[in-house]
């Protein structure tokens, strides 16, 4: 939350840009490359994505059971084994697939919904107060209990988790994008666009959305990292998809088997994976924002 807010302040403080061009992107990339933490975060994220995509090449899918049970890390099982003798390294690697899928899908839904509502609210000013109230109300809801309730009622599955996380993530996106879009719609070039066409859709798609793209990019990363945390939290409470491995499920099964107090490896490795993804996503968004904003670029 803190990082999101910080990013929002930074972004809204920058000059709105009407649309992307190659030169600006290049400048951003050059500036980004000078951000060591950003590059490190990008590297970690790429590593995790590669692990997810290439999981079958890295580790065999964890079988139903194995031998020995609760073995500490050793050359055969780098991350040890769980209470059914399954390889924890395999679980973490294959778990990255579901975690990244939830992150991407939930944030994509949240971004689309959040952006559409934000720009509609900003462009059609009569709707803005309604959008504001809707966002404020949704943000004031007790998110975790509601997520638990919905996931419990609907039944745990990857689709449920994606939809539940997305359902509670879009208001944050709307708030960020709206603040930027409100500035953009008052700029002269948008007035000029209104003289060229009567289609609000064209103006929104052609002029407003490109101008808020930096905010959206930052939101994607921040929302994705929050989605991973939410999904892990739900899975730890037993509301994850029992048909697919996830980092939260590894933690949940460790807790259920009563092995948390003795088998430290069961909790350490999936926790590190979650930490790496969330931290990398946050650092990446901050670094991108710095690189994008000429005022905060490293000279």
């Amino acid at each position: 939350m803190r990082n999101t807010a910080a990013v929002a302040v930074e972004v809204t403080g920058s000059e709105p840009v009407a649309f992307e061009n190659g030169r600006a992107s290049l400048q951003t990339w050059r500036a980004f490359r000078r951000e060591p933490l950003g590059m490190l975060a990008l590297g970690i994220l790429l590593l995790l994505v590669i692990a997810a995509v290439a999981a079958p090449l890295i580790a065999p899918y964890p079988p139903s059971y194995g031998d020995p049970v609760l073995a500490s890390p050793n050359p055969q099982h780098w991350f040890g084994t769980d209470s059914l003798g399954r390889d924890v390294f395999g679980e973490v690697v294959w778990g990255s697939q579901q975690s990244i899928l939830v992150a991407v899908a939930a944030s994509a839904i949240a971004i689309v919904v959040g952006t559409v509502i934000a720009v509609i609210g900003a462009y059609f000013r009569r709707l803005d107060s309604f959008v504001s109230v809707l966002v404020d109300v949704t943000l004031s809801l007790p998110v975790l209990p509601l997520m638990i309730l919905i996931a419990a009622l609907v039944g745990p599955s990857t689709t449920t988790i994606i939809l539940v996380v997305a359902a509670f993530s879009w208001p944050e996106v709307t708030r960020l994008v709206r603040s930027q879009a409100l500035i953009v719609v008052q700029l002269p070039y948008v007035d000029a666009a209104r003289l060229m066409t009567t289609s609000p859709l064209w103006i929104i798609a052609r002029h407003i959305v490109p101008a808020v793209t930096p905010v959206i990019v930052v939101s994607v990363v921040v929302t994705a990292s929050r989605a991973v945390l939410s999904a892990a939290g739900l899975a730890f409470l037993g509301l994850g998809d029992p048909n697919a491995w996830s980092w939260g499920r590894i933690l949940y099964e460790a807790q259920q088997s009563g092995a948390m107090s003795s088998a430290w490896w069961l909790t350490l490795f999936p926790s590190i994976a979650i930490l790496m993804l969330v931290l990398a996503a946050t650092l990446l968004s901050v670094a991108y924002n710095d690189a994008r904003n000429p005022r905060s670029r490293r000279r």
Partner: peptide, 17 residues
């Protein structure tokens, strides 16, 4: 039941077999 940890574990074995 998710509160039944033993059944939760063997349910996976049943699915896989």
């Amino acid at each position: 039941s998710l509160q039944d940890s033993v059944t939760s574990q063997w349910a996976t074995l049943v699915k896989d077999s």
